[in-house]
């Protein structure tokens, strides 16, 4: 029996672990993959106070070392469900663990396009991270899907590396900043494919082409070796939707105090309903959720 189980070892979860351990609570952190979360893929973080340039990997290692030095226990197992009650039970891929309080800090993952063959082609032409994988498409033709800032910034980044970049977007207008759109329009090797969506992936071991269908139903084949999807992220909360309220987007309904509808279960980081999903707000959530959990445990023990 632990005082607190934290599900997810990203910046929110690891900050929560640091705060909980400094308050001398026993802490188990459960992580399905590896600690660090989404920041691990960011080569250079420039907006975290006091660290003007740090790689996501280095920051993750520092957080992990800080949390373990303080005595937080980590297990690399996937949490598959929470059983609510005065004692909470978290079932994982490897066992089950009990605690007085649970903090859900599982973060989010890249939204898939939902096209047949997509999963098999990840790493064989399909990517969700232009800065991670762009270098493998030097002088090749690629496409980006999406209309937000990430999609347009990805297209700009790829325009410097690739031969032709097609930007496929289901509408005429973009959600991205106008300045980014304007910069992209100046690039001669970027072609806009608007009012269109990808309807088929054509592959032979790796991606060879994509079929695009426009709003009138006419189909075009684009011969691209790479397809970068930047259509947002989805929270990884679905396994916990039976005990805590989620909104239409799948985010845990919780305010700035990180309380969910279930007493003793808290939400921290990108998987919570919030205005700004950033490293610094995830860390802030971790501190708030841990402090609220500590208060809850104190009341419980009275």
């Amino acid at each position: 029996m632990y005082d607190m189980i934290i599900i997810g070892a990203g910046p929110a979860g690891m900050t929560a672990a640091i705060y909980a351990r400094r308050a001398e609570k026993s802490v188990l952190v459960l992580e399905a993959r590896s600690y660090g979360g989404q920041i691990v893929s960011t080569p250079d973080i420039e907006n975290y106070p006091a660290a003007p340039h740090i790689s996501g990997f280095d920051l993750a290692v520092k957080m992990y070392e800080q949390a373990t030095a303080l005595g937080a226990e980590f297990k690399f197992e996937r949490a598959v469900s929470i059983k609510d009650g005065e004692t909470k039970t978290v079932i994982t891929s490897g066992g089950s663990y009990e605690a007085h309080a649970v903090i859900v800090a599982v973060g989010s993952e890249n939204r898939r396009l939902g096209i047949e063959g997509e999963e098999e082609l990840i790493g064989r032409g399909i990517s969700y991270c232009a800065t991670c994988d762009g270098a493998f498409f030097r002088k090749k033709d690629v496409a980006v899907v999406g209309g937000g800032n990430t999609a347009l910034e990805d297209a700009l980044y790829l325009a410097d590396l690739a031969n032709t970049v097609y930007l496929i977007h289901r509408r005429e207008g973009f959600r991205a900043d106008e300045s980014t759109v304007a910069r992209l329009r100046e690039r001669e090797n970027v072609k806009f494919v608007l009012n269109s969506r990808v309807t088929k992936l054509i592959a032979e071991g790796s991606l060879k082409a994509v079929e695009v269908t426009d709003n009138d139903g006419s189909k075009t084949l684009l011969e691209v070796k790479g397809l970068f999807a930047a259509i947002g992220r989805i929270p990884e909360n679905k396994d916990f939707g039976d005990v805590i309220d989620l909104d239409e987007g799948g985010y845990i309904r919780a305010g700035e105090n990180c309380h969910t509808n279930a007493a003793g279960i808290f939400a921290a980081g990108d998987n919570r309903t919030k205005e700004l999903r950033q490293l610094v707000t995830a860390a802030a959530d971790g501190a708030v959720a841990a402090t609220e959990a500590i208060k809850y445990i104190a009341e419980l023990k009275q």
């Binding site: 990840i122 032409g125 498409f137």
Partner: peptide
């Protein structure tokens, strides 16, 4: 045909038998 890393490929008897990306 590496287009995303980390990519781990298993080889047996000179042949690729499986791979994992990410």
């Amino acid at each position: 045909g590496i287009s995303s890393i980390p990519c781990v490929i298993a080889f047996k008897g000179g042949q690729e038998t499986d791979r994992s990306v990410g």
